[in-house]
Simulated scan of single mutants.
Amino acid sequence: MKLAWQDTDVIDMPTLGTRIAALDGLDEVPGGYGAKLEWARTRAKAFRAEFAATGTPDSVTTCDLITLPYPTKFGLFRASRAVAPFVSITNRMLVVRWTESDGRNRVLLFEPSDHELGQNTPYFAALIRRTPGPLRNLLTTRHGTVLDHLARLGIEPEDVDYLLFDHLHTQDLRRWIGTTGPQADLGGTLKPAFPNAKVVVQRRELLAMSRLHPLQRPWYQPETYRDVPPDAFLAVDGALVLGPGVAVVATPGHVYGNQTLLLNTSTGIWASSENAIAAECLTPEHSRMPGIARWTRTWQQEVVLNANTIETTAEQYNSLILEKTLVDRSQTDPRFLQFFPSSELTASWANPGTSPTFTHKALTHR
């Protein structure tokens, strides 16, 4: 399937931000994944002080979007002994604002998912078909839409500069960035809801989406990218500082072009991605969920992955160690880290044995 950016120069577009030299060079590390693991840990330690010195953004606000079921075998990969086949996760958007050195104000939306269209992703569409409507409604809670949250915060859509996702699983961006031709399912050619926003995405993911592997296909909607404007994308490589206390870091594994939002705030450094679904998955020895602490002792693995695609599992493990090393400890409970899952494990009566030991629920900075 031909995507919008094929036969264009979108893959060769200039990138933005300031390159993070301390995190360059992973692909050139000699040896196997064990050597790369030590590289990730060492380089993350070196970059922490450098990142803190960039300053802080003006504000970070958390907006709940939707709580929905997700397979336990994916979210708590191999570690859980819960009988419940599903966990509940809450998808959240972060609204990040900062001021450039020249006085320009910037607005970045992290994980502004259009969940109404996201449910057409093959895996979730099949799950929806198998679940009776009343049960589906009982297990799903819609908290608010992207545009409603922005209106509440007093942010006009045309003031949004960047849209950032940790990866493009389930994402249908047509309503956000518009289309260049009519869309049969949406009633015509779409004007962009965010006319001035660029989608910041790792170049690797754009390239991978052009020819999906069978393991990837259940989680993407490539047909929705045929008629989106190529110039709405900003292809980046690796790690970049975008603004004071705001960075994007390549964290491959969950998908080929996975990336993490890094924030320096009044409580220290945070990372947000979907590499794990709970903060306790980075310090599983402190988890009270059935099986988690025992699993980490038995197998001497210090993190529990969110592993639905398992594109490159060892890379994802290393990426989560990178995130674990970059962030600070929670001021609420120092056993846990300031890792904020973009889809966070949420307690539910329907999923016994999957109630998290600790949740952040929000990431706030003013």
Rank of each mutant, 00 (worst) to 15 (best):
N275C: 09
G187D: 12
G118W: 14
Q259W: 12
L207M: 05
R130N: 13
R136M: 14
L190F: 09
N351G: 14
T180R: 09
N120L: 13
A4Y: 11
L206K: 01
T251V: 14
G34D: 10
N306S: 13
D12H: 07
H149M: 06
R211I: 02
F110V: 04
L139Y: 11
G178N: 01
M93T: 02
K191M: 06
A35V: 05
R81C: 08
I292S: 06
T265R: 06
T62G: 03
N91V: 09
P334K: 10
E315L: 15
C281T: 09
P290R: 09
Y220D: 00
D114C: 12
R104V: 02
L168H: 11
T359R: 06
G31M: 02
L168P: 15
N308A: 02
E38G: 03
L16F: 11
T8L: 04
S80H: 04
A278K: 08
T90A: 02
D231C: 05
R136V: 07
F47S: 02
L164R: 00
E38P: 00
E223Q: 13
Q300A: 14
L322C: 05
R217Y: 10
P334D: 15
H286W: 13
T346R: 06
R226W: 11
G34E: 14
E344H: 05
D7G: 03
S342T: 09
V146C: 04
P284M: 04
K191F: 03
E274F: 05
